[in-house]
Computed example of a mutant assay.
Amino acid sequence: MGHPLLFQTDFGLADGAVSAMYGVAYSVSEDLKISNLTHEITPYDIWEASYRLIQTVQYWPAGTVFVSVVDPGVGSTRRSIVVETSSGQYVVSPDNGTLTHVKRMCGVVAARVIDESVNRLPNSGESYTFHGRDIYAYTGARLASGVITFEQVGPEVPVDSVVELPVVEARREGDLVAGTIDVLDVRFGSLWTNIPREMFLALGLGHGSRVEVTITNDTRHIYKNILVYAKSFADVYVGEPLVYVNSLDNIAVAINQGSFAKAYNIGTGNSWKIQIRKAPKIIYE
């Protein structure tokens, strides 16, 4: 019996690219069970692809194969790679930083470069722009269906050699915690930070506490306000901003039934900084 196979790309669904990947996979085995993680990654955004993987990978059974194709360097000298996570899943991807968060937060125990002389769609050797179909979907399907083992993917390479994107670590500085806005909860516009819940709670905060949130982008001051630390969105009025713990056990900022990102034109990445501290007491004279 095979294992689940999941696809993630920045292709969208407006044309036949994703369908072609499905077709290649089913040509390997019609018994495969294929699901989509997402095909709405922002074009060329390797960081977002990395983050979407860590949202998902560890919740699937051991043996599950993920194929992630966000590949602005397609056809270049970047490697094509498969890694095994510490919890037994496999990720097939260009070695361009897509595996950053899986490597850091889930753990990678082994890595292999795809041997394209074996694990490449037959008669596709002169195509250099659709590795998602010709190499990644094909190899992922062969691995998920049991046609090949992980060892047959290709030569093993050191885990330390798997490419990682630059990461700014969250930190505590006295009475505040600071980090970056890593990614958006896209549909609802919430800001997901890299500040862990435990670091935040070390400030002595509980649900209902008021916190001061400051957001900057490089040298520009974007936002500063007093928000409530809420257990859920229902704890604040519609249209009211809040701080909460997201599904990755990190701190997030949102507007109840509104988009914080759109309201304040906020983006993501290492240049988007956030600081949170216990709200200062206001003394009226």
Results as ranks from 00 to 15, higher is better:
Tyr59Thr: 15
Val65Lys: 02
Val65Gly: 02
Phe66Cys: 03
Val67Glu: 01
Ser68Lys: 00
Ser68Ile: 02
Asp71Ile: 04
Gly73Ser: 09
Val74Asp: 01
Ser76Ile: 11
Ser76Pro: 07
Ser76Tyr: 09
Ser76Thr: 14
Arg78Phe: 07
Arg78Gly: 06
Arg79Ile: 10
Arg79Asp: 09
Ser80Gly: 14
Ile81Glu: 05
Val82Gln: 03
Val82Ala: 07
Val83Gln: 05
Val83His: 03
Glu84Val: 03
Ser86Thr: 13
Ser87Asp: 05
Gly88Asp: 00
Gly88Phe: 00
Gln89Val: 03
Gln89Asp: 05
Val91Leu: 11
Val91Trp: 01
Val92Ala: 10
Pro94Cys: 08
Asp95Tyr: 03
Asp95Glu: 11
Gly97Thr: 02
Thr98Phe: 04
Thr98Gln: 04
Thr98Pro: 03
Arg104Gly: 07
Arg104Thr: 10
Met105Phe: 14
Cys106Gly: 14
Cys106Pro: 08
Gly107His: 07
Gly107Leu: 07
Val108Arg: 04
Val109Lys: 12
Ala111Cys: 13
Ala111Thr: 05
Arg112Val: 06
Arg112Asp: 14
Val113Met: 13
Ile114Asn: 01
Asp115Tyr: 10
Val118Phe: 11
Val118His: 12
Asn119Thr: 07
Leu121Trp: 01
Leu121His: 00
Pro122Leu: 11
Asn123Val: 09
Asn123Cys: 12
Gly125Met: 11
Gly125Thr: 07
Ser127Ala: 15
Tyr128Pro: 10
Tyr128Leu: 14
Phe130Lys: 00
His131Gln: 07
His131Trp: 03
Ala137Thr: 03
Tyr138Leu: 04
Thr139Ile: 10
Thr139Leu: 05
Thr139Lys: 02
Leu143Gln: 04
Ala144Met: 08
Ala144Ile: 05
Ala144Arg: 00
Ser145Ala: 13
Gly146His: 10
Phe150Val: 04
Glu151Phe: 11
Glu151Cys: 09
Glu151Thr: 13
Val153Gly: 01
Gly154Trp: 00
Gly154Ile: 00
Pro155Asp: 15
Glu156Thr: 14
Glu156Arg: 15
Pro158Glu: 13
Val159Trp: 06
Asp160His: 15
Asp160Ile: 15
Asp160Cys: 14
Val163Trp: 05
Pro166Lys: 13
Pro166Phe: 09
Glu169Arg: 15
Glu169Gln: 13
Ala170Tyr: 04
Arg171Asp: 15
Arg171Ala: 15
Gly174Asn: 11
Gly174Phe: 10
Gly174Glu: 07
Asp175Val: 11
Leu176Phe: 15
Leu176Ser: 12
Leu176Arg: 14
Val177Leu: 08
Ala178Gly: 12
Thr180Cys: 12
Ile181Glu: 02
Asp182Leu: 11
Leu184Lys: 01
Asp185His: 12
Asp185Leu: 13
Asp185Val: 11
Val186Arg: 08
Val186His: 08
Val186Gln: 09
Phe188Ala: 08
Ser190Val: 09
Ser190Arg: 07
Asn194Gln: 09
Asn194Lys: 06
